[in-house]
């Protein structure tokens, strides 16, 4: 890709401080003990892998975590994912997976409150080659929740 397609503003829109913060100090590191579901997602383009584990009790995600290697976008997105869905109902988490997917495809993002960090994922939509990175953790969560 050439320089004329994008500008520096788009690059900083993807690499926002909140993304870099999550990358340096990821939340939800480690697949939780006593997990009721887990799933592995691989990105065949770069060889990265993320594993997500969940503990679901009475329809609520009591704990969630991930392990594996990934780029800043993959790790930050997975980190945000664990923050966003811990304590949420499975139904709410599924709804969020769909919404995040929409944001990564370019839908307007309007997250507030505890979900505000997810706003940062909107910057990834301008980089189609990186959307797969941001999806890994969320895709693995969906798989881990099953059905």
């Amino acid at each position: 890709m050439t320089t004329d397609r994008r500008d520096g503003a788009m690059l900083s829109a993807m690499y926002q401080d909140v993304i870099l913060q999550h990358y340096r100090a990821p939340q939800g590191r480690g697949v939780p003990d006593g997990r009721t579901g887990e799933a592995l997602r691989k990105n065949p383009l770069c060889g990265d892998e993320l594993r997500v584990g969940v503990v679901v009790r009475d329809g609520v995600i009591a704990d969630v975590g991930f392990e594996g290697r990934g780029c800043s976008i993959a790790v930050a997105s997975a980190s945000m994912m664990t923050e966003a869905v811990r304590g949420a109902t499975v139904a709410a988490a599924r709804g969020l997976i769909v919404r995040v997917d929409g944001v990564l495809r370019g839908d307007a993002a309007d997250f507030a409150g505890a979900l505000a960090d997810l706003q940062a994922l909107a910057g990834v939509a301008a980089y189609p080659q990186r959307v797969g990175c941001a999806r890994m953790g969320w895709g693995a969560l969906g798989d881990a929740l099953g059905g």
Binding site: M1, T3, L11, Y15, L45, C46, G47, C71, S72, I73
Partner: peptide
């Protein structure tokens, strides 16, 4: 501290095409 995939994206911004991956 910089994953190759991130490097490729940032370098691309500077007009430098490199490969990142396996």
């Amino acid at each position: 501290d910089v994953h190759p995939h991130d490097l490729a994206t940032i370098l691309d911004q500077h007009g430098v095409c490199i490969r990142a991956g396996h």
